[in-house]
Amino acid sequence: MNILEQIAQDTQTRITHQKTHRPLESIRAQALAMKSDSGRFESALRQEGMSFICEVKKASPSKGVITEDFDPVRIALAYQEAGATCISCLTEPKYFLGSDKYLEAIAKRVNLPVLRKDFVIDPYMIYEAKILGAHAVLLICAILEHSQLQEYQEIAQSLGLCVLVEVHDEEDLQKALDSKARIIGINNRDLRDFSVDIHTSTRLAALIPDEVVRVSESGIQGAQEVQMLESSGFEAILVGESLMRAADKRVALRVLRGDKER
């Protein structure tokens, strides 16, 4: 079993436990009763110029704890001040030390669309995302069947949530295209072994129709890489670790954006 399969299995255990305390019927009813904010995340990414989805992440399985000085709201507000387009928040607790509470707190304080970054393996997590204040959810092709990918997108859309469908190879990409995904994220990190190759994005980008929003994820370190991705047809990048390690996240994002004023 690779690390991605292990995370998915542990996530299933976690959600099964949560259902005993708060049944699916309860959170579904609450989510459906909430006001729809349909399309906000996607609309932000479709604005002119490169969009930046900045990630709030305390740790990862490959790098361990990234920052000890972790204040999710403060970090998200710094990203907002520096010109982020959207915020991504890790909620997976075991391997990334994330929390639903981080997402909820961020969504209440920032004025930007927020993505729930987790390993969605059950509709429960989509209804949960809505209640927590997310505007979008991540769906990873590698851990979902075709039917699940389609069903989960329909559930998200019924709640007014956007969906970032994540792929890593041609097989994943075909699954995403078959599901009529509107936003496709190409993860340069192979979640089976956590190796990174940014050229994964440039290789797959040409296979994605122009009407689909292209997002490059992981391994993006500098402005030159951002420029390369933009010239390859990407409308957005998702960046986490390089910003999380920066002492001044405002400056780090401005440098990544290629702003002349530091």
Results as ranks from 00 to 15, higher is better:
1 M>S: 13
1 M>G: 12
4 L>C: 11
9 Q>V: 01
10 D>T: 10
10 D>C: 13
12 Q>Y: 11
15 I>Y: 15
19 K>S: 14
21 H>S: 15
22 R>G: 08
22 R>H: 12
25 E>V: 08
29 A>W: 05
31 A>E: 06
36 S>M: 09
37 D>L: 02
37 D>V: 11
41 F>W: 03
41 F>G: 07
41 F>N: 12
45 L>V: 12
46 R>M: 11
47 Q>T: 13
47 Q>H: 15
49 G>Y: 02
51 S>G: 14
55 E>S: 04
56 V>K: 00
58 K>S: 14
58 K>E: 11
60 S>F: 01
63 K>I: 07
63 K>C: 03
66 I>C: 09
70 F>I: 15
72 P>I: 08
72 P>H: 08
75 I>C: 04
81 E>P: 06
83 G>P: 14
84 A>R: 10
87 I>F: 05
88 S>T: 06
94 K>R: 09
97 L>F: 00
99 S>I: 03
105 A>C: 14
106 I>S: 09
108 K>W: 03
111 N>Y: 11
114 V>K: 11
115 L>G: 04
118 D>Q: 06
119 F>T: 03
120 V>K: 05
126 I>V: 00
128 E>Q: 09
129 A>F: 03
129 A>L: 01
129 A>Y: 08
132 L>K: 08
134 A>L: 00
135 H>G: 10
136 A>C: 13
139 L>Q: 01
139 L>I: 12
142 A>C: 07
143 I>S: 01
143 I>L: 06
143 I>Q: 06
145 E>M: 05
145 E>Q: 00
149 L>T: 02
152 Y>L: 08
152 Y>G: 12
152 Y>I: 01
152 Y>F: 11
153 Q>W: 04
158 S>P: 09
159 L>M: 10
161 L>K: 08
161 L>P: 07
164 L>I: 13
166 E>G: 15
166 E>L: 01
168 H>Y: 13
169 D>W: 00
170 E>M: 05
170 E>P: 04
171 E>A: 00
171 E>D: 06
171 E>F: 00
176 A>I: 00
184 I>W: 05
186 I>P: 11
188 N>Y: 02
189 R>P: 09
190 D>C: 02
190 D>P: 12
194 F>W: 01
208 I>D: 06
210 D>C: 10
210 D>Q: 11
211 E>V: 00
211 E>N: 09
215 V>L: 05
215 V>N: 07
221 Q>D: 13
224 Q>H: 14
227 Q>I: 10
227 Q>A: 14
228 M>A: 14
229 L>Q: 13
243 L>Q: 05
243 L>K: 04
243 L>S: 07
245 R>V: 02
247 A>C: 01
250 R>Y: 02
250 R>V: 07
255 V>F: 10
256 L>M: 06
256 L>Y: 04
256 L>F: 06
256 L>D: 08
257 R>S: 15
258 G>E: 14
258 G>C: 11
258 G>D: 15
261 E>K: 15
262 R>K: 05
